[in-house]
Design a protein around this nucleic acid. Structure first.
Lengths: 113, 113
DNA sequence: CTGTATCCGTTTCGATACTG
DNA sequence: CAGTATCGAAACGGATACAG
């Protein structure tokens, strides 16, 4: 299959995973299942609540994740990957594998240099 | 294969393709072969020379593309994908295909809504 | 517990003019 | 032809404090 650069959808996909924390959030939900806000915060310690909220909101709008509010005291909110969001798994896997190769490539370069 | 979110290489790959014009530049070189600076400029009309230069320089540093200067008057500079850079083809293809699916998904949503 | 609000530094990128 | 230089706007993201 050929890609027509001028009509390309690569940017659309990148716009979904772009955002400093989106990939790692999606990975945690993909591989760790449903998580609460505070669990995600614990899994990604250096993220601020502001950023966690904004990244989750964007992913929700993009229909990658689902947000469920339980009207309890104290409040409980659970985040999970949508069925549609699961289709990102292959994409992230490939990005991960290429990234690993890239580190090898750069590593070898510096070992040679 | 499992991805360990905390030790993930997804970000490394994204850092290569991130940059507003990198994907489209790489796609043009992948599918159109070696190009000169002015040819790329013509293929991506809305890019400024400043951005074209900076994106090309970064891709060169990442060893995705190769820059060859011919010491002629007027000057000629040719950009091409490195052998290593070709390994990005699969990645970009997958991003493209997922992006197309995503447009369908969103399109159907709006048609239904 | 699950967020908001505010402030502010950094990064990114566009517009424009200029150079060897 | 193939860039560089400079300015400035806008987006992004961190720190901190506060709220329901």
């Amino acid at each position: 299959m050929e890609i027509q650069p001028s009509l390309c959808n690569v940017e659309d996909t990148l716009s979904i995973i772009n955002g400093k924390w989106k990939a790692i959030i999606v990975l945690h939900l993909l591989y760790g299942g449903t998580k609460r806000f505070s669990e995600l915060k614990r899994l990604v310690p250096s993220i601020t609540p502001k950023m966690l909220t904004s990244q989750l909101r964007e992913l929700e709008e993009q229909q990658i994740i689902q947000r469920v509010v339980y009207p309890e005291i104290p409040p409980r909110v659970e985040y999970s990957i949508t069925e549609y969001g699961h289709s990102l798994k292959q994409v992230l896997l490939m990005l991960h594998q290429w990234g690993a190769t890239h580190l090898d490539h750069m590593g070898n370069k510096y070992q040679q240099g």
